[in-house]
Design a protein around this nucleic acid. Sequence first.
DNA 1: CAAAGGTCCTGCTCGC
DNA 2: TGCGAGCAGGACCTTT
Length: 271
Amino acid sequence: MPELPEVETTLRGILPTLLHSTIDQVIVRNRSLRWPVPDGLEAKLAGQTVENVARRGKYLLIGTPAGTAMLHLGMSGSLRVLDSGIPPEKHDHVDIALTSKKVIRFNDPRRFGSLLWAGDQPFAHPLLAALGPEPLSDTFAGSTLYNAGRNRQVAIKQLIMNSNIVVGVGNIYASESLFRAGINPARKAGRLSRARYDRLATEIKRVLSEAIKMGGTTLRDFHNAEGKPGYFKIKLQVYDRAGKPCNICAQPIKHRVQGQRATYYCSECQT
DNA sequence: CAAAGGTCCTGCTCGC
DNA sequence: TGCGAGCAGGACCTTT
């Protein structure tokens, strides 16, 4: 599920409840997420006051005086803000219970998500240290992609999904931004002009911003901290639209598997 | 049985 | 032959 807009939506949903709150206790019911939840994480967070809640790429960072916890939603994870006392259901792996009698509950059926401890230098953590720029910041531009794509054989779609080059662009928004930029997803990264990279960077920023405004995209699992879906699906031009007419030229949208991921595009509009 | 929105890691291939 | 970079594929899971 969650790409940058969905993680940002989640962040905004938990922020008012979590920021400046005090953690009463953390309950881990299933430690076997993508990586095991470290032993002792509950004890480190208990009694701490949350001084900072942030997002880096698709990682959510919960900062306390004792250190920072790092949470990733993986493919099917979500966070909800609940009142205390609501019994956990299947796949509710972690609760962060607050002294305010609110609970931040992490549910993740596929368990590709993670909850890790990043100490007091979170950005030095191996999972964060090598991440590329935030796509919505000024440190990301056409030049970022152009430089990264020089002389590379890799398909442009895989380039923009590489978190070491730019964070937050997952399978849905990769297809969508390439459609908007008129670029064939299979095109080799080294064979794109600077001008087309400028356009692509612009479209990545636009599609992510628009999706955040609409609360993200819900295909099946994703919901925000209130349990409600995102509404960007109605704006998708190509993703999950195989065989349906292109909104520009009416040719059927094509589907292919690229790097083991579903890719959707219009062979007429995208070159 | 295939596929699902993420992404790290391993191991292969290619070119120097 | 040896090495590193780049790239493809496997891995982690459950649900539909």
